[in-house]
C-alpha cells in the first residue's frame, strides 16, 4: 500500500516534470508554385435562398488560401510517434466548432481529437443537412437535418481519419474536411501560414503537414522536441 502511494507520487512528479520540460513546436508553411485558380460557386449564387445571403460577388472555392508571401493556410500539421498513440484527451477537451454561414462551412478545414465533441451550428436562415461520409473503419456515417435557427448538432468521431468529409445534401457545394487525431498534438495553419503545437513532451517524432490539394498524403519531417520546443517549416508544392 505504502509502496503504491510512493509509486503514485513518483508518477505524478514525473508528469509534472514532463509538463515543465514540455516545449511548443512552431513553424510556418509556405506554398511554392502557382495554384490552379479557384472556381466560382455558381450553384450557390443560383440558389434562391443562399444566393440572397451573398449580395456581393459570387463566393469562390477555398482550396488554396495563400498569403502575399506564399503563406499557406488550412494546412493540418500533426505530430506522429508511437508514444502518442491513444493519448487522446478528446473526451475532456473543449468542443470544436463548425459553423454554416451563408451556406458555406466555416472553417472548411478543421482538426479535432478522437472522442472530442464537434458542435455544428447553423447561422443561416436556411435549413441544412449535415452528412458525414467517413472512410475509416469504426467511424459511422451520419446524416442529420438542421432547421434554420435549430439547436447545434453534436458529432463525435471515435477513430482517427484524415480529412473526413462533412457535406450538406441540400446544398451540394457545401463541404468541410475534418481531420481526427488520437492525441492533442496537432494544429491548423492560420492565414499567416504559422502553427503552434503546445506542450509537446520532449522526444523524437515525425511532424507531418497535410493539405487537401498541395499535400494530400502529407509532407513528413523528423523533429526533436526539447524543453525549448522546436521550430519546423514546410514548403508545399504545386506543379
Amino acid at each position: 500500500m505504502k509502496l503504491n502511494r510512493t509509486l503514485a507520487a513518483v508518477g505524478s512528479l514525473a508528469i509534472a516534470l514532463q509538463m515543465a520540460t514540455a516545449g511548443n513546436i512552431t513553424g510556418k508553411v509556405t506554398l511554392s508554385g502557382t495554384p490552379p485558380p479557384e472556381k466560382d460557386i455558381t450553384p450557390l449564387k443560383d440558389d434562391a435562398q443562399c444566393g440572397k445571403l451573398h449580395p456581393g460577388p459570387v463566393p469562390k472555392t477555398q482550396f488554396f488560401v495563400v498569403g502575399p508571401n506564399h503563406e499557406l493556410a488550412d494546412v493540418v500539421v500533426v505530430l506522429q510517434g508511437d508514444s502518442l498513440k491513444g493519448k487522446s484527451t478528446g473526451a475532456t477537451a473543449a468542443p470544436a466548432e463548425l459553423d454554416q454561414i451563408g451556406c458555406i462551412y466555416t472553417p472548411q478545414i478543421l482538426a479535432v481529437q478522437t472522442g472530442q465533441k464537434i458542435h455544428v451550428k447553423n447561422s443561416d436562415p436556411v435549413m441544412h443537412n449535415v452528412h458525414t461520409t467517413p472512410t475509416a473503419p469504426g467511424n459511422k456515417e451520419e446524416n442529420r437535418a438542421q432547421l434554420a435557427g435549430g439547436p447545434d448538432l453534436t458529432f463525435v468521431i471515435p477513430q482517427p481519419e484524415d480529412f473526413l468529409r462533412f457535406k450538406c445534401d441540400v446544398h451540394p457545394w457545401m463541404f468541410a474536411w475534418v481531420t481526427v487525431v488520437d492525441h492533442p498534438y496537432f494544429a491548423v495553419t492560420g492565414k499567416d501560414g504559422t502553427f503552434t503545437i503546445k506542450d509537446v513532451p520532449p522526444g523524437k517524432y515525425k511532424l507531418v503537414a497535410y493539405h487537401r490539394k498541395a499535400a494530400l498524403k502529407g509532407i513528413a519531417k523528423d523533429v526533436e522536441v526539447t524543453a525549448d520546443g522546436a521550430k519546423v517549416d514546410f514548403v508545399a508544392e504545386v506543379k
Binding site: K39, D40, T61, R165, K213, K239
Partner: peptide, 14 residues
C-alpha cells in the same frame, strides 16, 4: 490519377 485529383478544383461532387 492522383495528380488529376490534386489539380481538380471541385465546386460540387467532391
Amino acid at each position: 490519377v492522383a495528380e488529376y485529383n490534386l489539380k481538380r478544383i471541385e465546386v460540387t461532387a467532391a
